[in-house]
Design a protein around this nucleic acid. Structure first.
Length: 991
DNA sequence: CTCGCTAGTCG
DNA sequence: CCGACTAGCGAGG
């Protein structure tokens, strides 16, 4: 150790007692072993080891040790027999945790120090003084007053639970004397807990005053006769020896023989797998996840460690304070160690599945009590909630705003929900609060409504909330967190460490129903929540949330977070039980921040181009309308399929083809094309008119309306949980269906442009779904074709029809291409016949021939169907599940439809997983390569970036390799992935 | 004003 | 034949 180093000394014994009383009585899930203090201890160590700079310690440790009391007689007992004789046995629930905390220390690869005959405090004192002598700085992690005598300019204390540093000034503030006089002060005051006698009638205030006047204890005892107060003078004179004895008891020894010298305390790197093994054995899921992420380990692959400590008897914890001190609504958070009911988790569960079940059962019937919801209107109450969140490390939150568009919304308020003990679901206290921040006075105010009275100022509240929202050691729970994430990012808060119950449910139940908070609440809690409409009205009578009466808003907002927290408690163990944690952690949760950033960036569109196109389309469409009315002999609504059908198949008597499922004549493009092909003029013009009006109404007219007033860009919103297969979807506007297949439509893409000095880069996977098929079904010819880089449709045509690839007629290839797509879609003769406009029997022959050539594909399809029938779901190569409950339907067409979807889902879903992996990795890859490329859009198999001109050349290969390697290392694909990439100033030319 | 239907855009 | 979203129409509240 040298000058400038920084030694952290953890008062392990002190921490155990304090954590035991301050933290919720957490028990290990599987056997009810009390582990609350161990959990708090591990979280603290992790935070100090990874994040100490961000705490109020403000420095990173170079040396680190955890010090414990050696549970035997100490030298103080020899001095004074009654020393610590008042101490009662530690609480029953704490006993097994002593050993576990020592194990935890070793699992963190930290020195675990204890010396017979000395208390932890003496060892700490010895190390601190030695380090100080060398010129190193010391932080003692403890809030014990007995250690305050050690504080100097270079030795500080740190209260980890309050995140507060204790330096000279804090000691003076608290005790009225500087640290070096703490020994004398304690000698005068005594300590009834430790049986340090002191002098009767002298408390901290008097002691400080006396020391101020007489300098120190010796000075005081020598001149005690000068004291005016009779009783006080007599007490001091009578108990002078007692005070001297007390001083010997409280003064810490700095000469303890040390087994490890200072250099041996140097901070060693973490042994990730070992630590994860311990944390898994303790069932500390959140911390396991964090550690795994930090050390880039796969937690799922690590076995829980075998603990050396004897497993305690599974027992209920003691019923601490039975009464709830916070009965009745108040703006105070639920008591930390307060009332708790039956601990449903301790009733003998042994497996994650059983825990998941008991949680689900407990919550399915738990009553939701809205009477405990509160409004936070003052800083004190807010601070109480924030402190409680920091202590429990878990809080549900939601941002309420004036719009469902996070790019336009203004914050109206924030709701919070805390559980006093996350492992006492049914009986535990879950309570919620709403912090109104931007509410306006009601509409009755003719002046238009000013800011409502009696709410916290938004900047002040956000300043206080920011640290906890950005604190990686406090898990934030929410529903559809991307909304709050993006909204708060606009307010300067970047939420760190979160769980999204919408995504958790999506991973568990995609295909089984909606993932809205209302659906989840009904499904898991049997509770139907208030609707937004009930609170804010709708349509003409609707108001923005900031105009809603605060009491009403509070109930609605507080209920939402209450539900989110309960759903989290139900779903979190289910993820583990169903072995879906990796899917959630790798493919879902990281997408929240990735997509929020893409949405925030948006893309520039050229409104002039769109406006010019709109004009052209309007002119052309008008010309078609005239001609259509001429040919029809009357004016009618061309856009009405019903009216159009009457004209074509009624009045004009054309041969009607297909009917829709409601019995109407179909006027689909396919029907009209067939009529046009046999020489009818009107259907052709209808088809053309439809194309023009579609382009105009859906794109050229609509897109400019989405340009953001401030950013001047278009910000789509991606939905992470609306498809069964794992694909994203894009809304408001949908930027995943911008035209490309016709030259007219394609022009719209020229309106998507890069900012000056930049280009748009489009990178798309080539044939990713067929490659996935070749991988999962393991088809030799397909694998070979992709390995050789040959045209896959030509290869298919060649195999099926015996036509050489060289000089293949375009039509033969077209048919093979349709068959290839059909295969991915769970082919049917009906569908293929429709697609190719051929007879169903002919399509059937094609399929038969295809399966003869590629029997592995038929096997894959049959196996997938059988799996889906048996399990009700299918899986992607990364383990994502897509559920098809109707695959067992007795209705043959419903069943067949579900079978086709089930065949398609692993293919489409695996491709979706691959591009998700690429997206999650992309940002880190770019920053590592010191490139500033910004990912803007995702279109299923394509990513669009905006890249500075000077960096294009360097960026393209990075994009390509990140995308092509995206399946690795989780899956080594049997076929290569191929990515095509181009840069240009607009999307049309880049694609 | 809401909702289902038809149609058409994309991968 | 798979997966999405949106516009316009028109029926029903």
């Amino acid at each position: 150790m040298k000058k400038g180093d920084h030694l952290f000394l953890i008062d392990g014994s002190g921490f155990i007692f304090r954590a035991f009383h301050a933290l919720p009585p957490l028990t290990r899930k599987s056997d009810g072993l009390p582990v609350g203090a161990v959990s708090g201890f591990c979280n603290m160590l992790w935070k100090l080891l990874t994040d100490a700079r961000d705490t109020s310690v403000g420095v990173t440790p170079s040396h680190f040790a955890v010090i414990f009391d050696y549970s035997a007689r100490t030298f103080r007992k020899d001095i004074y027999d009654a020393y610590k004789a008042n101490r009662s046995a530690p609480p029953e629930d704490l006993v097994p945790q002593f050993g576990l905390i020592r194990e935890a220390t070793r699992a963190f690869n930290l020195p675990c120090i204890e010396t017979e005959g000395f208390e932890a405090d003496d060892i700490i004192a010895t190390y601190a003084r030695k380090a100080e002598a060398i010129g190193a700085d010391v932080t003692i992690v403890s809030s014990d007053k007995d250690l305050m005598q050690l504080v100097t300019a270079n030795v500080h204390m740190y209260d980890s639970m309050k995140d507060k540093q204790i330096s000279i000034a804090e000691v003076i503030e608290k005790w009225g004397v500087p640290p070096e006089k703490m020994i004398d002060l304690q000698a005068l005051v005594g300590d009834s807990v430790d049986n340090v006698p002191g002098i009767p009638g002298i408390g901290p205030k008097t002691a400080a005053q006396l020391l101020e006047e007489f300098g120190d204890l010796d000075g005081l005892l020598a001149r005690a006769g000068e004291i005016k107060q009779v009783k006080r003078r007599e007490n001091i004179l009578a108990h002078a020896d007692q005070a001297r004895l007390s001083r010997r008891l409280v003064e810490l020894r700095t000469d303890v023989p040390l087994d490890l010298n200072l250099d041996a305390l140097v901070l060693e790197p973490q042994d990730g797998p070992r630590l994860i093994g311990f944390l898994k054995a303790m069932e500390f899921g959140t911390l396991t996840r964090r550690v795994a992420a930090a050390c880039d380990c796969d937690a799922d692959a690590i076995e829980p460690a075998a603990l050396h400590v004897e497993k305690a008897e599974a027992a209920h914890g003691p019923d601490l304070d039975a009464a709830d001190p916070n009965a009745g609504p108040s703006a105070a958070p639920p008591a930390r160690a307060g009332a708790r009911g039956k601990d449903a988790d301790v009733t003998g569960e042994t497996s994650p599945a059983e825990l998941a079940k008991s949680r689900a059962d407990a919550f399915a019937t738990a009553k939701i009590d809205k009477s405990c919801y509160v409004t936070i209107r003052d800083v004190e109450a807010l601070d109480d909630w924030i402190r409680a969140a920091s202590e429990t490390g878990l809080i549900a939150f939601e941002a309420e705003a004036t719009s469902i568009d996070p790019m336009q919304a203004e914050l109206a308020g924030i709701s919070l929900s805390l559980a006093d003990n996350t492992h006492t679901p049914a009986g535990g206290e879950i309570c919620s609060a709403y912090i109104p921040l931007g509410h306006k006075s009601g509409a009755s105010d003719l002046l238009g409504g000013g800011t409502s009275e009696n709410q916290l100022s938004m900047p002040e509240a956000l300043e206080r909330l920011k640290p906890v929202l950005e604190d990686a050691s406090v898990l934030k729970v929410g529903h559809n967190l991307k909304f709050a994430y993006l909204l708060l990012k606009r307010y300067g808060i970047v939420v760190k460490s979160y769980d999204d119950v919408m995504l958790m449910s999506y991973v568990l139940e995609a295909g089984k129903g909606g993932q809205g908070l209302d659906s989840l609440s009904e499904r898991w809690l049997g509770h139907i929540p208030m609707t937004y409409k009930e609170v804010a009205g709708s349509g003409k009578a609707g108001v923005t949330f900031d105009m809603v009466d605060i009491e009403k808003a509070m109930t609605y907002a507080a209920e939402k977070v209450d539900l989110a927290l309960r759903i989290w408690l139900v779903l979190k163990p289910r993820l583990v039980a169903e072995r879906l944690t990796a899917v959630y952690e790798r493919l879902e949760r990281p997408m929240v921040a990735t997509l929020a950033e893409m949405e925030e960036r948006g893309i520039t569109i050229d409104r002039q181009i769109l406006s010019r196109l709109s004009g052209e389309l309007a002119q052309k469409a008008a010309a078609f309308e005239d001609e259509i009315f001429q040919l029809a002999g009357e004016r009618f609504t061309i856009g009405s399929p019903k009216q159009l059908g009457d004209i074509l198949f009624g009045k004009m008597g054309l041969p009607g083809g297909a009917k829709t499922k409601t019995g109407q004549w179909s006027t689909s493009a396919q029907v009209l094309e067939e009529l046009a092909a046999v020489g009818h003029e009107l259907p052709r013009k209808i088809v053309d008119w439809r194309q023009l009006t579609k382009l105009k109404s859906t794109y050229t007219d609509a897109l400019p309306g989405y340009v953001h007033p401030q950013t001047k860009r278009v910000h789509t919103s991606y939905s992470l949980a609306s498809t069964t297969t794992g694909r994203l979807s894009s809304v408001e506007p949908n930027l995943q269906n911008i035209p490309i297949r016709t030259t007219e439509g394609r022009k719209i893409r020229t309106a998507f442009i890069s900012t000056p000095g930049h280009k748009l880069v489009s990178a798309d996977y080539s044939q990713i779904e067929l490659r996935v098929l070749a991988h999962v079904a393991d088809i030799p010819q397909l694998r070979q074709a992709f390995a050789d880089g040959v045209d896959i449709h030509s290869m298919t045509a060649s195999e099926m029809f015996g036509v050489p690839v060289e000089g293949m007629p375009a039509d033969v290839r077209r048919r093979a291409k349709a068959i290839n797509f059909g295969i991915i879609y769970g082919i049917s003769a009906f569908g293929l016949a429709n697609q190719l406009s051929i007879e169903r029997s002919e399509a059937g022959d094609y399929i038969k021939r295809y399966f003869e050539r590629f029997p592995g594909i038929r096997d894959y399809m049959e196996n997938t169907k059988a799996f889906a029938r048996e399990h009700g779901y299918v899986e992607t190569i990364f383990g994502r599940r897509a559920h098809y409950p109707d695959i067992r339907s007795s209705n043959p067409s419903v069943r067949a439809f579900n079978e086709r979807a089930a065949i398609n889902a692993p293919i489409q879903g695996s491709a979706a997983d691959i591009i998700r992996r690429a997206m999650v990795k992309m940002e880190g890859v770019m920053s590592k390569a010191q490139l500033s490329a910004r990912m803007l859009l995702q279109v299923h198999d394509e990513l669009i970036f905006e890249v500075e001109d000077a960096e294009i050349e360097a960026t393209l290969p990075v994009v390509v390799s990140t995308m092509e390697q995206a399946a690795m290392p989780a899956i080594a694909m049997r076929v290569p992935l191929k990515v095509d990439v181009r840069a240009a100033h607009n999307w049309d030319e880049a694609h």
